[in-house]
Simulated scan of single mutants.
Amino acid sequence: MTSDVDTNHSVLAPKTPMPSSTENNEKDHAVIILASGLSQRLGQSKQLLSKHGEPLICYMTKIALATKPLAVIVVIPQDQPEIADVIHGLVRQNTTIHSVINLIPKTGMAHSLSLGIDALITPKISLMNRVLIMGVDQVLLDTDHLTALFAAKSTVVASSYQCLDEASSTDTSKNNIVGLPIVIDVECLKQWQPALIGDKGLRHLIRALPSNQLSTVINHQLSYDIDTPKQLFYARQQRWLD
C-alpha cells in the first residue's frame, strides 16, 4: 500500500464542478513522483504495468504534467534499466521532467522523498510555493483530484480514502487513511526534510500537524493501489489496467 497516515480528520471534496487542470493557477508548484519502489510483494515492476497502452509511470507523469508545474521530479530505483528507459524517453520529450536515481531504494519512501527535495534546489525554487507529492500505483488517480488538492490553501492538503486492509476492518481509527497524493508548502517541506528517514517519516510528520494546518480531500477511488498479485488481478478485472 502507499505510505499513509491513519486518521479520521477529513473534509469532503467540493460538490461544485471543478475547473480542469488546464485552468490551474500560475506555475507556482513542482511535483515529486515517488517511483523507486522495488515492488517485491507484487513480483514485477508496478511502474511498468500498462494503463491505456502505456507504462503506468508514464500515465502518472502525464497526470502530473497536466497541473502545469515548473518541474516534475521522478525518483526511480537503481538497476532498473526498463524503468530508466521509459523515463528518459519522457525527459527527451519534455524538459520539465527530471529523473533522480535512488541508489538505495530498499531504504524506504522517506529517502526517495528526500532525494526529490534535493532535486528541487534549482534557480526555480524561488518561484515555487507548493509541491505535489504522489506515487504511481493509485490507478484511479485523475487530474480532477489533483485540482481539488491545489484548490485548498492549508499548509498541507492530503488525500483521504477508505482503508481496504481486511486486517484493519475492526479498527475504526483506520477506516479512513490520509496520505498521498499531498500538496505541501515548499517551506514546510524543506523543514521536514531532515526528519525524512526510512518509510515512516512522512506519516509521523503529518500526524504532528495542528488541525488548522491540515485539510483533506476525500476520494475513495484512491483506496485501490497495486501492491499484490491479487490487487493487480482485480484492477485488470475492472479494466483499470490493461
Rank of each mutant, 00 (worst) to 15 (best):
L202H: 07
V91K: 15
S50K: 14
A167R: 15
V156W: 09
L113P: 06
V131H: 04
L70V: 02
V74L: 10
G53P: 13
L132M: 14
K15H: 05
A35S: 12
T16K: 01
L149W: 05
S211L: 13
I57T: 00
V131T: 07
N25A: 07
S154M: 15
K68Q: 06
G201P: 02
T107C: 14
Q162S: 13
P81D: 03
L141G: 00
L115R: 07
T172F: 04
S154T: 12
D144R: 00
V139I: 14
L34F: 02
H9C: 07
W192L: 14
S223Y: 06
V31F: 13
H204G: 12
Q193A: 00
G135N: 08
A71R: 02
M1N: 11
G116K: 00
N212H: 14
S126I: 15
A158Q: 07
Q93N: 05
R236L: 13
D171R: 04
V157T: 05
I206H: 00
S36T: 07
M1Q: 11
L222V: 01
V183D: 04
E166A: 07
V74C: 09
W192A: 08
V91F: 11
V178I: 14
Q78E: 05
L232E: 05
L141K: 01
L115V: 07
K200P: 02
P105W: 03
I104E: 15
L164A: 04
L70M: 04
K62C: 04
H145Y: 09
D6V: 10
S21T: 07
E187G: 12
R236K: 13
M18C: 02
H111A: 03
R41I: 11
S39R: 02
F150V: 00
P105M: 11
A35V: 06
S169P: 07
V75I: 07
L222W: 00
S168L: 10
L12Q: 09
S50R: 14
Q80Y: 02
A64R: 04
K153A: 14
G108H: 03
D225R: 02
M128L: 14
Q191M: 11
V91I: 15
I57G: 08
S169Q: 02
P210N: 04
V136E: 08
G53S: 11
A84T: 06
Y234M: 13
V72T: 12
M1R: 11
D165V: 06
I218K: 14
A84D: 08
I121V: 07
S50Q: 13
Q193E: 04
D142W: 02
A119T: 09
Q193K: 12
P77G: 05
Q221P: 11
Q191D: 14
S39Q: 09
L113G: 08
E82F: 06
G89F: 11
H111M: 05
I32C: 12
L241M: 10
I33H: 13
T170W: 10
T95S: 15
Q213N: 11
A35I: 09
K200Y: 13
P181A: 01
E54D: 03
M109V: 03
H52W: 03
D227Q: 03
M109P: 09
K68V: 01
W192T: 10
M134E: 06
S20L: 01
S159H: 02
L222A: 03
A66T: 01
I73T: 11
